[in-house]
Nucleic acid binder design. Sequence first.
DNA 1: ACCTGAACACCGTTCAAGT
DNA 2: ACCTGAACACCGTTCAAGT
Lengths: 209, 209
Amino acid sequence: MRLMAARKPERKRKNAYHHGNLRQALLDQAVQTIGRQGVEALTLRGVGANLRVSRTALYRHFADKRALLAAVATEGFRTLRTALLSAWDGAGRGQPGFEAMGLAYVRFAIANPAYYRVMFGGFVDQSSAHPELVAEARAAFQVLVDSIVEQQHLGLVRNDDPERLSRYVWAVVHGVAMLAIDGQLPPGHPAEQLAALAIGRLRTGIGVG
Amino acid sequence: MRLMAARKPERKRKNAYHHGNLRQALLDQAVQTIGRQGVEALTLRGVGANLRVSRTALYRHFADKRALLAAVATEGFRTLRTALLSAWDGAGRGQPGFEAMGLAYVRFAIANPAYYRVMFGGFVDQSSAHPELVAEARAAFQVLVDSIVEQQHLGLVRNDDPERLSRYVWAVVHGVAMLAIDGQLPPGHPAEQLAALAIGRLRTGIGVG
DNA sequence: ACCTGAACACCGTTCAAGT
DNA sequence: ACCTGAACACCGTTCAAGT
């Protein structure tokens, strides 16, 4: 027998009404669940339950599950952009900045694999449906484009179309990141090693000197 | 009122018993559904219904849904390996063979996006659980490694560890493929163009000549 | 406006039972 | 051996209703 005063009817929650910022709370909870258990394990009912909120409260803030995932992806691109920018600037731009940025990209994916999968795993339709997502993804990409342009001015990168070159560079680090978080790399050959090799080869290629 | 003879009890099916090769039929049906509607739309019940078979018949041939997806991925890697080999050989090996192989890789992904996603989308646990899948994935990778070794002998590729170089090359084409099937490439800049650029840059890098 | 429970039409998987 | 229907414990989403 436990020594406690008789419990209040159910839950206190002054008015049981507004929740502070339920939208952000739902988003944070989704990110947390995805981070811990993967995208597949995310259920709207679970998110609601963890927040002590009805199963359908979520629909006041997101049209459906895909909209929630799109919002997660949007946050992800924002975080990625910040990471890329601070690596580029922090290493003094130029060649060291570029290499730091490449490593930062792969590290972001490794540190947030489920996050990264929401961004690139085909769970959200990239097209017109979520303009904020498209804008944020573009902004992250633009950091790379800007660095390529700057390196071209410094004579560090060949004078091809910077957007095209940037898509190539993106593909390279994206490929490394995906193989890494997908468990496709053999143990003992850590992802950072492949990332370092990739960033080196990126500049001079795999051909003979 | 329709002019038809009275229908037989339900379905004829001589003994309603063995199905020929149900395992392969299930696999084909899954591949077809995934190809048409994506991985998310694949339901075991739907597969059974399309095959006029009970919802649970599938469990005689696959442990669970993940095992079915693993089998699909295994088939995918086998098809990919064949495509890579015939591109490499068909273009006469060496540098043209290597470039043909890279293009064939990206084309495989574009032609079979859902297939490709099952192979790399994190739906199957790559590790010990499905040794056949691991073997088939490794065999596909080995085609690339062999071509790198051969190119090293021909003086076409620098003398780094061929496995490591191959992982880098894989990451590049994988990145291109993923961006392509994920709709991350702007319209008017088709995936094949990025693939061609990537395969060119792969050899000589993005640095100034 | 924001939140609720009940209800609907789905899932994957288990299991006792049939041939 | 191979297949079956019924049942279980889940889903996302809709909707009338509460405050």
